[in-house]
Amino acid sequence: MQPFIHIDVANSEEVIPLLDARSRPLAGGTDMLPLMKEGIVAPERLINIKRAGDLRYIRADEDGLHIGALTTLDELDRHPDVRRDYTTLAQAAAEAASPQLRNMATLGGNLLQQARCWYYRGDFHCWLKGGELCHARDGRNEYHAIFDQSPCVAVYPSDPPAALMALEANLRIVGPQGARLVPVAEFLQPPSAERRTLHTLAPNELIVEVHVPKGPSGSVYLKAMDRATWAYALASVAVAANIRDGRAHNVRIVLGAVSNRPIRALAAEELVEGQLITPELARRAGETALAAARALEHNHYKLPLTRNLVAQALRDIMAG
């Protein structure tokens, strides 16, 4: 690990002036420290924001849910309002990693988690790290994208952001020019030649709050893993909807771990909007959601898996 300077700050105000391209904020550190140990990132300064008490809260009001960026995944999962009214988010937080990691990992940091691709994390100078080539595209790619959105085929690894997208959440981001509000769906973007990250946070900005509008009547998060727990998603699905008179309204379907970012399945949403979702319609919605997907050499299983998860999530929503 490269030597670095460690700076403690007491509140979010103090952070912004310290942030630049050579500095990184340190919250839970569950991703930052491994990245530094493996030499994938080497910031000169770590701005420790863990003690910024003004960023750690969950507030539910008429306006919806306000979550401070330093809220841990464990706190999210345990919060009774989140569990009741924003179930998909609580489930996604609960399914992410082990209790030890959830006790440390923050929602803000989780949004910024870097790709888990084994080439990116390994000793390869891949495209996402600034190199020329995506090694996974023609290498071992069983855990990679089925929606091709950039030269890189790594998938966005975090669970809660897919749920946040289904809930149409916004991020409050503070920078030198003040605050901006941006939907999670816009914040998470495929990497580009100029920006080799899975998000659009500028180096001098900080996520301070996640705002979730008043929740729908039902939501669910389903995640498939290679073991019973504590693994990254093979694929996941977040679904939110208002169920009135036995029909589904404002349906939002988000697919996780299938691309550089969570994917809204708009055509599938349209198919089931306002409908009584029968098992047959749920099955067709799964097919529609995956119509544009293309498997790589080793991840053909992701097509039926994601289809099945979409159908199951819709059935679960209808069953309440």
Binding site: R116, Y119, G122, G139, R140, R227, A228, T229, W230
Partner: peptide
Amino acid sequence: HFQMRDGHILTPHFSTYLLPTALD
């Protein structure tokens, strides 16, 4: 599932080489 590709180990961590948990 210990995996290699072209002689390179892809699973040198317990985040990719999965061992069973109590729930498994």
